[in-house]
Amino acid sequence: MSAPALVTASRRQWSGAGRWWTPYVFIAPFVVLFAVFLVGPILIAIVNSLFSEQSSGLGFGGSEVLFVGLDNFARALADSDFVTSFGRVVLFGVVQVPIMLAISVVLALLFDSGLVAGSRFFQLTVFLPYAVPGVIAALLWGFLYQPSVSPIIQGLASIGIDVNLLAPGTVLWSIANVATWSTVGINMIILFSALQALPRELYEAAKLDGAGQIRIALGIKLPMIAPALLLTTVSSIIGTLQLFNEPQVLKSITANISSDYTPNMAIYAASTLGKDSHLSSAMAILLGLATLIISLIVLKATNRSSQKKATDG
Rank of each mutant, 00 (worst) to 15 (best):
M1Y: 02
R12V: 13
W14D: 06
W14F: 08
S15F: 13
T22V: 10
Y24F: 15
F26P: 13
A28E: 06
F34K: 07
F34M: 11
F37M: 14
L38T: 12
L38W: 03
V39T: 10
G40T: 06
G40S: 10
I42M: 13
A45C: 13
A45R: 11
I46Y: 01
I46K: 00
N48L: 04
N48R: 14
S49R: 11
S55K: 14
G57N: 04
G61F: 01
E64F: 04
L66V: 15
D71N: 07
R75K: 14
A76M: 04
A76Q: 05
L77Y: 03
L77W: 13
A78K: 09
F82T: 06
F86Y: 10
F86I: 01
V90A: 15
L91I: 11
V97F: 00
V97D: 09
L101S: 07
I103W: 12
L109P: 00
L109A: 10
L110F: 11
R120L: 04
Q123E: 12
P129D: 08
Y130A: 13
G134Q: 01
A138T: 06
A138Q: 07
L140S: 08
W141A: 13
W141Y: 11
L144A: 10
L144C: 10
Q146A: 12
S150N: 09
I152R: 10
I153N: 02
Q154I: 00
A157Y: 11
S158A: 15
I161K: 04
L165G: 06
L165D: 03
V171G: 02
W173K: 07
S174T: 15
N177C: 10
V178H: 02
V178Q: 05
V178N: 04
T183M: 00
G185S: 06
I186N: 07
N187I: 06
I189E: 08
I190V: 12
L195N: 09
Q196F: 00
A197Y: 02
A197I: 09
A197V: 03
L198C: 14
E201Y: 03
E204P: 00
A206V: 10
K207Y: 08
K207P: 00
G212R: 05
L218D: 00
G219Y: 00
I225N: 08
P227M: 04
A228Y: 05
T232V: 15
T233V: 09
S236P: 01
S236G: 11
I238P: 01
I238C: 02
L241F: 11
Q242C: 03
F244I: 06
F244C: 10
Q248I: 11
V249R: 01
L250C: 06
L250A: 08
S252C: 03
T254W: 13
T254E: 12
S259R: 03
D260M: 11
Y261N: 06
Y261Q: 03
Y268N: 14
A269K: 07
S271K: 09
S271L: 13
T272N: 07
K275R: 11
S280T: 13
A282Y: 11
A284V: 09
L287I: 04
V298H: 02
N303T: 08
S306T: 04
Q307Y: 08
K309G: 05
K309T: 03
A310L: 07
